[in-house]
Each structure stands twice: as C-alpha cells, then as structure tokens.
Amino acid sequence: MTSRTAIQAFFDDKTWTVSYVIADTASRAAAIVDPVLDFDFKSGRTATVQADRLLTHVREQGLQVQWILETHAHADHLSAARYVQDAVGGRIAIGEHIKQVQATFKKLYNLERYFLPNGSQFDHLFREDEVFHIGEVPVRAMLVPGHTPADMAYLVDGAVFVGDTLFMPDVGSARADFPGGDAHELFRSIRRLLALPRETRMFVCHDYPPKGRSPGWETTVAEQRTSNIHVHDGIGEDEFVRMRKARDEQLEVPTLILPSIQVNIRAGRLPPAEADGISYLKIPLNALGSGKAPT
C-alpha cells in the first residue's frame, strides 16, 4: 500500500526528544508533534533553535499546518506549541484527561486563581478513539494512560506516534511514578499499542541510546513485541509492574520537570508576566523526591 504521508523527525540532543512533522503528500496539510522550546536551566533563558528547524522544513516544503499535537504534558522539555502556532497557525491539541493533570499541578505550583484546570488553554481536547484528519488522511487519537493520565498516541497511515509510553526496544518503557501514573495502566496501554498490526511503524518521543548505538526513533510493533526489554511478548502484567515499580524507585526526578510542566499544562504559554513585564517559573521546594538514574 502506498503511503499517503511523509514523516520528518527532528532530534534534540539536549533533551533527547524527537519532534515530528507529518504531511499529507496530496494536500500538503501537516501536523507537528511534540515541538521543543529550548530552555537553559542555568540562565533561565529560552530559545527557539529546535522549533525553528521544524518551521524551516514546513516552509521549504510548502506545508499548511493544521494541528500541533502534544502526546502529553512533558516533564523533560518545554513545549514550543504556542511559538509554532504564532508562526504558522494550527490548532494545539492534547487528550481530554489533561484536565486531571492540570488540577494536580495547579495545587503543586499554587498557580494563579484564574488558571482553570479545564483544558481551555488548548484549542482541542481529544476523546478516546476520536478521528480527525491531516488534510484528507484520517488520524485516530488513542488514550494510552500510565506514564501520566493524559498520554495519547496518534495512529495515522500505518504509523503510530506513541509519546513516552514506549521507547526503542533496547531502552524499554516509560516510568509510571509521576502524579497520576500507574504501572498497571501503562502495561495495558502498551499491550493495546502492541495489538496493532505487526508491520505498524512506531515513532517514539525520546531515545536514550545504550553506549555504542546512535539515537533512533523508528521501530515497528513486531520489533517491540519480539525485543522490548521490558514488555516483549511473554511478559505478563504482574511481572511488568514489579519491574516498573522497582526501577521507578531508582529514578531521579527529571532535570526539567518543575520548569516544564507549568508551561506545558498551559499549551506552551509561559506564565503570565508580572508587574515588571517578566515571566517567572516557580520551583516548589521539598515537593518531589529524588532517586539515582536518569531514565
């Protein structure tokens, strides 16, 4: 079957994040998945180097951006969704359970009273199995909770964009110890993804390659079912949950979790500027634990 879409990946070697541009080759309509806003934690400065790479591609290819798709409220990078929208348009969308994530983190950050955890910061909230289109190409939004309650995967033209739910087969699976995370739900979400046709192309949002391997981001359902070190065929739910909980107990808090989530639950907007015209990020003290390993 001839592919109706073109997929271009953009890897950020500072946050190990992969963003994507998906284009309908007939209509030149496009979606951008998980765009990254550069953020230097030491200086508190933002930049748009990574997002501008996507925008250059969009303009060079003559694409019309219809959607800016977030797989979840990321804990490892700031979203450039709002910057991208201001540059080329498109509707910023995420799963409807972002409201649960917003409510949790509104309390953690003690956000302003008028920040409403109702998802209104986004242009569209996807329901489970909702179908939308990139040009004429249908896309199915799949709810895959476990890493967070709001994780989504996007199934389009024989390819699925899985966010942080799964990594490359030699890296494994996402952690499940964030607020609202659940290892049992994560296992069930993974098995749902692995029930897709074996030839389905799978695109991950991060890669943390073992020594000796270059970063990668494309695999298949068949490869995951055969070789994923955490959840290949034959691994049952109880075994997976024991492994995941034991591993999560050893993981350190991601470096950018506190700066990033307060931006990402706002659909990529920085916090409102204060009287001096400057936006400030909050760092709640003694609110999160720490462990040992980064992934």
Rank of each mutant, 00 (worst) to 15 (best):
R175I: 06
K107I: 10
W217M: 07
I22T: 10
P169M: 13
Q8A: 14
T295V: 14
T200R: 04
V88R: 04
W16P: 00
S19N: 06
T25C: 07
V84R: 09
V144S: 05
A195K: 05
A150E: 07
A150H: 08
T255L: 07
R213G: 02
D248R: 07
R242C: 02
V231C: 13
Y114P: 03
F167W: 14
S3E: 09
F10L: 02
G135D: 05
V144K: 14
D170C: 07
H57S: 08
D151T: 05
K245S: 06
R191G: 03
A9N: 02
E218S: 00
V160C: 09
H232M: 14
T5V: 15
A153P: 00
P197S: 04
D151K: 03
V231N: 05
F187E: 04
G44D: 09
G277V: 08
L78I: 10
H124R: 15
E136T: 15
L54I: 06
D182A: 04
V49R: 15
K106W: 03
G216K: 10
E128K: 05
S214Q: 15
V171K: 01
E199H: 05
I94G: 01
L111R: 06
Q250E: 15
S43P: 04
G180F: 00
E112Y: 00
A51K: 00
G146H: 02
D76N: 14
D34T: 12
W217G: 13
Q102A: 02
D123K: 03
D276P: 00
R269L: 09
Q250T: 13
S43L: 07
E185W: 10
E130V: 12
I94V: 11
G180E: 02
L186G: 01
E96L: 15
F41P: 03
W67F: 11
F115V: 13
P145R: 07
E70A: 06
A51R: 01
T17G: 14
M1Q: 13
T104Q: 05
V36K: 04
L270R: 00
M202T: 13
M243D: 10
V253R: 11
F178C: 14
E237F: 08
R269K: 02
R28A: 14
G236A: 07
F203Y: 11
R188W: 01
T46M: 14
G236F: 02
R53W: 08
V131K: 04
R45Y: 12
G234M: 06
L281E: 03
Y208E: 09
S290T: 14
F122E: 10
D13Y: 12
F167Y: 15
Q262G: 01
F203I: 15
A80F: 05
D86I: 10
A23C: 12
Q121W: 02
A246Q: 05
L125T: 15
D123E: 11
C205S: 15
A29S: 12
Q64R: 06
L193I: 11
V101Y: 10
S173K: 06
L194A: 07
H206T: 11
E237P: 03
H57A: 09
T46A: 14
A26F: 09
K14A: 13
P149V: 13
V144C: 12
K292V: 10
S189I: 04
E249I: 05
N264Y: 03
R140V: 11
A159G: 08
T48M: 13
